[in-house]
Structures are given as structure tokens and as C-alpha cells.
Nucleic acid binder design. Structure first.
Lengths: 250, 250
DNA sequence: CGGACAGTTGATCCCGTTCAAGAAACGTGG
DNA sequence: CCACGTTTCTTGAACGGGATCAACTGTCCG
């Protein structure tokens, strides 16, 4: 089972943290036909309204999905890290209900969704793993609904940082976390205004919760940040979340 | 292919509006083992935190899913009508990330998720139909994120009413729509306060957009309500949405 | 050195909240 | 069929979180 650099290994690893896959299953996943593609920061991988039938495996960098009101006000729907399968939804429905854009420069593997479906059909455990992945994403969307509907600006931002940091650590990033969002994008994620994001961040810095300089986030007090964000990691369905959180505190 | 009253027919019908299924596939779905259960209005089908591995096919009535902040503030995550498969997510993840509750008195069919998975494995088109259904739900969640993040109170409520009415019509309900939510629940859906829901509704009534008396909604001007809610039905992925909307206007 | 972009600040406004109480509607039992 | 408790809806007054508009600062980069 070869996992040389630049393969679908990150995706496989992610699936394996939540589902059991046999060696055969793993090989079948790694044998998927795909094409590497790079996108610069800001490039679109799909536009709302596009017809599409491909999906992206994110190998490096960050991607976000978003949609907008008719007046053009953008809401960010999800953030994606290396290992994420992005846009299974659009590709299966055949129509992009939202846009997909590179948040940083990214390396992705381009996979026709028909290939994925065929794989899932031939390997039930793979199908199950993909289902699980889909539902974890749904779970995240639900938590975001709660965030937007019921939490204050500070809670929303603290919650977002907790989620990002924990997801990064789950794929092996360390101590200094990467917040690939500028303040406009934090605003578009949390449903508030740039100006207010700015002021809220200053408040959080003043209270010794975080340090945040040019996309680098230091969490000064994990327990306090969790409390500030009303954060409970269960919805992320991470393996070893207890161990991961213990690392956060260190 | 028997579709006597009280069978899984509503579920099958819904799947067929979005996916192509052979007679064999349909029969296999209708042959799923299940148990009828009734719940009174307000009863819980699942509590956040429960371990679970069953899913519900909603045959009659309305169901909602919700979760709450640590302080107990509730956010409604989704609404479900007859024909919906509810809680595939919880059952597959094995853990309820949110609560499932009867909004009206309901009749549901209780299905072990293992049976559903086995069915999907044996019938790829069924698997595909279930995927599609899951992604349509995701699409709705995303639209709700946009609603909560970027729209005003009036837009949120108008949007909700448009969605409900159209989904009801898609399963055959007519002229007078059923809003199975009281004002507290509208508030919990739209992320605003009961008081403000009340005032916003009065404004909408005063402007001749709607009539709403004890859960009965009359849409006095569909085009205007759509505009007020910044509503575009594409995200619901309804077949014949054009025809359906034409009916709304009548 | 100049232009673009991200972050910051100030002043003012308003949409929606909060708290509190009253009015209707509803269901239930006697 | 009325009495009464409960739930749902409605109203009022005061407050505040966050929005809005506009300008300014810093920084990166060619």
C-alpha cells in the first residue's frame, strides 16, 4: 500500500479516523484515478449555479464554501482542511448550490464523482466511510446554525477558533494555529460585521484569551477560550478528542 | 407493488421525485421491515446525547430537530414533513448530536439503520437516492445558515414560510398552508426573539403579505412574499419547481 | 515611492433584546 | 356549559449589541 507524497493519503487518513477500512478498501481508495491541480489563493473551484460532476480531495491548504443573498452578502458555509473531500454535495446533485473557493493556495485532487460512486458500490465499507464523513459535515453545519442563531459575537468567534484549532491538531498541526481567514472572512463566517469582528477580537486579546497576528493564532488559555465559545467538541466526531484537547491545553 | 395506506409509500414517493428507481428498487424499499409508532405532539424521538441506531420514516405530521447552547437556548435545525427520512445522521453516527421531537402528533415508521444500509448495499440506485436525499438536506441547512447569518428578521420569517409552503405543496397540500410552529418555535428557527417574531408578523400582516391564524397560513401574494424573503427555491431541489411555484401564485 | 489591501478607530443610529405585564385562546374537569 | 389553569399571543418601555458610514493607519510589494 504505497502512500508516497502527493497521493490521496490525507483523505484516506481522515476517513480512517472515523471508519474501519480493510487493506483492500484502502488500496482501492488510493487507486482512484485523479488529477492534481493547484489553485492560487482566491481562485474559484466552483461557482454557485455551475453544473458540475467532479469533486475535490483537498491535499494541502484551505478551502471554503459560501453562498450569497441576492444582494450579494456572503455567508461562509464551511471550511475545509487537508484531507477533506470537498463538494461531494455539488457533484452528486449535479448543480452547485454554493461557491467553492481557495482560501489559501491549495493542492487538490480532481476526482470524477462517478468514480467515487463506483468505488463506494464495490466496497461497502468505503460507502459507509463516505456516509460517515458526510454526516460529520452535517453535524458541523448544525453546530454552525446554533452558533449563528443563538450566540453572541464573542462566542461565535471563540467557537470558530476552537473548532479550527482542534481540527488542525487532529491532522497534525501544532502549537501555533493557522487562521486562514482575514477579518472580512471571519465576519462572513460568523454572521457579523467586519468592524464588529475587529472590536471583538481586540476584546478577546485584551482579556488574554488569544493572540492573533497575521493569521497565526496562539491560544493562551484553552479552557477559557472553550468557555468563551460555549464549545463542546463532540459535534466534530474526532477520535481521541480527549487526548487532542489535553494537547491544546499544553 | 402494493402501496396500501400506512406503508413506506410517502418515503418512496419523495425519493422518486429526485432519483430514478426501478420497480425492483421500489419494491425493495417497500419491503423494508419497520414498525409503526405514534408520538404525541411534543414527544421526543431522540435526545441530544443518546446512543441510537434507528432512523424514522415520517409518514404523517411534522417533526423538528434541534440542539441547544449550554445555557439551554434552543436552535431549531430542521423541519420535516411526511415522506422525510429523519435522523439517518444520528443513527449512522451512533450518537445523537441533536434532539428529535414531534411538532404535531405524528405517525412514523421505525427502521433499524442496519436494514437501510443493507438495502443500499444491495441496490445501488437506492444508495444513490439516499445520498441525494442527504445532500438536499445539507443544501437546506446551508440556506438556513445564510438565512441566520445574513438576513433581517422579516426576511428570515418570510423565507421560512416560503420554504414550508412550497415543501407542503410538493407533497400535495393545498391553498391553506400549515405552519406547525408557534411563535416561540418560529423564534427558535429564525434565531430571533419571540417578542420580535410577534412584531414582525404583525408587520407582515399589515403589509398584506400573509394571513396567519392558529397555524393556518394564507399567502396573499406569493411574489411579494418571495421578494420579502429573498427566496429562491433552487436549494430545495424540487422537481417541477416552476409548476409548483405557479400554483403558489394562484 | 505609490497603490492596494488589511486592520483600526470614531460617531451615530437602529434593529432586535429584555423585562414585565396583560389579553386571548385553549383544554380540561366538574 | 361554565370555571379555571395553562399556554400562546400581544403590548409597552427602556436598553444595548452590533450595524453603518467614513476616515485613518499600517504594511506589504512592485
Amino acid at each position: 500500500m504505497s502512500m508516497h507524497f502527493h497521493s490521496l493519503a490525507p483523505v484516506l487518513n481522515k476517513l480512517r479516523t472515523r471508519s474501519t477500512l480493510s487493506n483492500q478498501d484502502c488500496e482501492a481508495i488510493l487507486a482512484l484515478p485523479f488529477r492534481y491541480t493547484n489553485f492560487e489563493k482566491g481562485n474559484f473551484l466552483a461557482h454557485e449555479g455551475d453544473r458540475t460532476d467532479i469533486c475535490w480531495a483537498l491535499l494541502e491548504g484551505f478551502i471554503y464554501r459560501h453562498k450569497a443573498t441576492s444582494l450579494g452578502e456572503m455567508q461562509i458555509l464551511s471550511l475545509h482542511l487537508a484531507g477533506d473531500l470537498v463538494d461531494l454535495q455539488n457533484s452528486l446533485l449535479g448543480l452547485a448550490h454554493h461557491s467553492v473557493q481557495a482560501l489559501t493556495s491549495v493542492t487538490v485532487a480532481w476526482i470524477p464523482s462517478s468514480q467515487l460512486m463506483a468505488l463506494a458500490e464495490a466496497h461497502p465499507p468505503v460507502a459507509r466511510a463516505l456516509w460517515t464523513d458526510t454526516f460529520v459535515n452535517a453535524s458541523i453545519s448544525h453546530e454552525w446554525l446554533l452558533n449563528l442563531g443563538r450566540r453572541t459575537a464573542r462566542q461565535r468567534i471563540a467557537h470558530l477558533f476552537c473548532e479550527l484549532a482542534l481540527r488542525e491538531r487532529a491532522i497534525g498541526e501544532t502549537s501555533h494555529y493557522h487562521v486562514p481567514l482575514n477579518q472580512d472572512q471571519i465576519a462572513a463566517t460568523t454572521g457579523i460585521t467586519v468592524v464588529h469582528v475587529n472590536r471583538t477580537l481586540q476584546g478577546m486579546r485584551a482579556d488574554g484569551l488569544i493572540r492573533l497576528v497575521v493569521n497565526k493564532l496562539s491560544i493562551l488559555d484553552w479552557a477559557a477560550l472553550k468557555r468563551a465559545g460555549d464549545f463542546n467538541s463532540a459535534y466534530l466526531h474526532l477520535k481521541d478528542s480527549v487526548a487532542l484537547e489535553r494537547q491544546m491545553a499544553a
